[in-house]
């Protein structure tokens, strides 16, 4: 494999925004496996079109636009899928995400900070749920609780995290209304 300077530069830029691009895709594609596929296709297109990227401009915004196209293409391929938002809503959500793209990195930093502030029991539930692609059913089976109880607990934890993230962003002055 040749690691030429151009590829090194691509890797640096891509890796810096890969989690955000995934978050972007994930908000528009329900199935995680499909989101993984779209991310992979997006990476391919970004590299193939890297010559068209203008140095000095925002790589992440460019990546989001490409990802948005790939999401729409993916939706075309899965046109018969009933588990999907309308094109109009996807366009709207995608546009919102691109507009707030500059805050996504701060959001993820805040998420990492907020995770460690959770009570130990909540941290343990998150670990169980996100370890090795576990499902709520897996966690329920292992913990002797019902699936709906796990789901409700996760919703509560997500709300806690969300409020914490909002607070952290506000505190850091990095938060802007979108």
């Amino acid at each position: 494999m040749s690691l030429n300077p151009r590829h090194e530069e691509f890797m640096r830029l891509f890796l810096s925004c890969e989690p955000r691009v995934f978050a972007f895709i994930r908000s528009l594609v329900f199935a995680r496996a499909d989101a993984d596929d779209v991310l992979q296709e997006t990476a391919l297109v970004l590299w193939e079109k890297f010559d068209q990227f203008e140095p000095g401009t925002r790589f992440d915004r460019w990546a989001f636009r490409i990802a948005h196209f790939q999401v729409m293409y993916h939706r075309q391929k899965k046109a018969r899928d009933r588990l999907r938002f309308s094109d109009a809503l996807v366009e709207q959500l995608g546009g919102d995400m691109v507009a707030e793209s500059q805050h996504l990195e701060a959001t993820q930093d805040a998420l990492a900070q907020c995770l460690v502030k959770l009570p130990e029991a909540d941290q343990e539930l998150i670990r169980q749920r996100y370890r090795g692609n576990a499902t709520n059913r897996d966690v329920a089976r292992d913990s002797g609780r019902s699936e709906s109880a796990i789901s409700r607990a996760l919703n509560r934890i997500y709300l806690t995290l969300l409020l914490c993230i909002e607070g952290t962003l506000a505190q850091d002055g990095a938060h802007r209304q979108t």
């Binding site: 890969e18 989690p19 995934f22 978050a23 994930r26 908000s27 995680r32 989101a35 996504l104 959001t107 993820q108 998420l111 998150i126 749920r129 996100y130 997500y158 995290l161 969300l162 993230i165």
Partner: peptide
Amino acid sequence: QISAGLER
């Protein structure tokens, strides 16, 4: 985004 952050 929270979900994706944890999954990713």
